[in-house]
Design a protein around this nucleic acid. Structure first.
Lengths: 118, 118
DNA sequence: AGAACATATGAACACATATTCATATAATAC
DNA sequence: GTATTATATGAATATGTGTTCATATGTTCT
């Protein structure tokens, strides 16, 4: 999109626009935040996280619970790991995953609240 | 994927799997919840919501603040409307949007907390 | 050492989706 | 009525991504 015709519309409430424009989050923060939500916004990953909310689990257990291939689970765990949404612990051949952070719990719960009250 | 070789792995912690399996969310709830998070997980939509967290705004104002085309914003607002994440109010030619729900506020804030503490 | 098992990962394909462009709808002003 | 403005939307394109398949890595056991 050309920089000039970015907004072709002329109806602008100047005071509001000025105020809100000052409070816009930086691109970096937006991307980071969007990254977290995007991770939670995929059914498989959400299921994984909902499992880990209950128990620390190894890849195979998750695979079994969700009735999906080990590979698919492992790929998604990689995404969650990279975003530091889950942490892991090696024990012999197993790798046990768990939620990284209290905020993830809260976000999940708040989401559940939202869909209940509706 | 064929139902039979759903999980080709044999290392299973039976007690954990049994317990967690009972608590798995139904597909409908998962999809609804994932839908919400997915909506928040797209930078443009997240920016829009962050704006609406400050002020009720019309399409054109959002367009101006985010320096994006009216069409792009309108398309994304449709997604947010369908998911009842935002509500709207018509006033003459304008349509003013705002966050639908307290939970959306909380989820956004909890997300911001998460990326700050990191 | 080799075999068996748990996990990770690269490539490919299929599917979803965000933006643009063009146009439609709806409301106001003249 | 027509013109103008604000918003909505359908189609097309480009980009992103989840799963599968095949394979690699790493660990334990014999």
């Amino acid at each position: 999109m050309k920089k000039d015709d970015v907004c072709e519309v002329v109806c602008v409430h100047e005071d509001i626009v000025r105020k809100v424009k000052q409070r816009v989050l930086g691109q970096e923060k937006i991307l980071k935040l969007a990254g977290i939500f995007k991770a939670l916004g995929e059914p498989t990953r959400l299921k994984i996280l909902h499992c880990l909310k209950e128990e620390e689990m190894c890849v195979c257990d998750i695979s079994e619970v969700l009735e999906m291939s080990q590979s698919a689970i492992s790929h998604q765990l990689r995404v969650l790991r990279d975003l530091r949404i889950v942490k892991y612990r090696k024990e012999g051949k197993n790798v046990f995953y768990s939620l990284d952070d209290e905020h993830i719990f809260k976000i999940l719960d708040e989401g559940l609240n939202h869909i209940s009250h509706h």
